[in-house]
């Protein structure tokens, strides 16, 4: 069992979410940076869909009441076990009673802690993920919360010493595919989107990354009838400033999507910090 001593600015339990319920208005949710969450699980021999903790800007402390193997991935964060420094992207042994502390990531936004056996908080609709849009799943972690850990019988052995670390560039370039509603925008909209940097706004969250920069102009008036939205969509509200949809995005929306991120780049978008500059390319 793991006790939350300090959750940091925002910590939630996440797995790979609730696919298959979008037609009922249930967001997929799950780890915002799915790649890092999967990696953390692999490093401790878990299935990739085991539940982990997603930390936002670190600053957390957990007390382990039983010995465990853990791995921290995502935004590179200083990890201390009873005060002793440990690397990220590597399995790490935690003795019973030890305090695991996460500092502030030097880059990126979200760090993931997997524990061998996985977190076994109650499932809601087949997932343990906290969905901050619809309120499904456990509440964000608070000091004093206790997280049960599953058994490690039958899991793969821990075979990797350290995985190559992801890098989080200061000014990432995200690949986009035009549409499905690029025809709702003026001819120069995609050129504007791909030629000027945008800045990540402070009101970004697990629902979406809000951007500041040159607004995209609409070629059509009127309202789009509501339609299904995918993760990575660049939805453009009347302000003309795109929002990149992340894991907790609404399942349907009535503002046109000018382009969608390459699915491989969604994990990069999930690591963007407020104030950071990004570029898009086709």
């Amino acid at each position: 069992m793991i006790e939350v001593v300090r959750p940091g600015p925002l910590a939630t339990v996440q797995d790979l979410g609730r696919p298959g319920h979008a037609h009922l208005g249930v967001p997929r949710s799950g780890a915002a940076d799915e790649r890092s969450s999967r990696l953390a699980n692999r490093l401790v021999g878990n299935r990739e869909d085991a539940a982990v903790v997603e930390f936002t800007l670190g600053g957390a402390a957990l007390r382990f009441h039983a010995r465990a193997w853990v791995a921290v991935t995502g935004g590179p964060v200083p990890v201390r076990v009873d005060g002793r420094a440990h690397g990220t992207n590597a399995p790490c042994f935690v003795p019973a009673g030890a305090l695991v502390e996460l500092g502030t990531p030097s880059s990126g936004l979200r760090s993931y802690l997997a524990v061998r056996g996985g977190l076994t908080v109650d499932e809601v609709l087949g997932s343990r993920s906290t969905d901050l849009l619809s309120g499904l799943g456990p509440s964000p972690l608070a000091a004093g919360d206790r997280l049960p850990v599953g058994p490690s019988d039958g899991l793969d052995d821990i075979t990797v010493d350290v995985a190559p670390a992801c890098t989080f560039p200061d000014a990432p370039v995200l690949r986009i595919l035009p549409g499905p509603r690029d025809d709702w925008f003026s001819d120069d909209a995609l050129a504007t989107l791909t030629s000027t940097p945008y800045e990540v706004s402070a009101d970004s969250n697990r629902v979406g990354v809000r951007l500041q920069g040159p607004p995209l102009t609409r070629a059509r008036k009127g309202e789009l009838s509501s339609e299904g939205m995918v993760t990575g969509s660049l939805q453009v509200p009347p302000s003309g400033l795109p929002i990149i949809f992340l894991a907790d995005h609404p399942t349907t929306g009535g503002y046109p999507v000018v382009a969608v991120l390459a699915s491989a780049d969604v994990s990069i978008a999930a690591q963007l910090r407020p104030g950071q500059q990004i570029r898009f390319r086709l």
Binding site: P19, V230, S263
Partner: peptide
């Protein structure tokens, strides 16, 4: 195909190659 999402005049068909 992991999700089929009807809209007002559309259906979104979502696949997930990662899973």
């Amino acid at each position: 195909v992991v999700d089929v999402v009807p809209g007002e005049q559309t259906v979104l068909v979502v696949t997930d190659p990662a899973t």
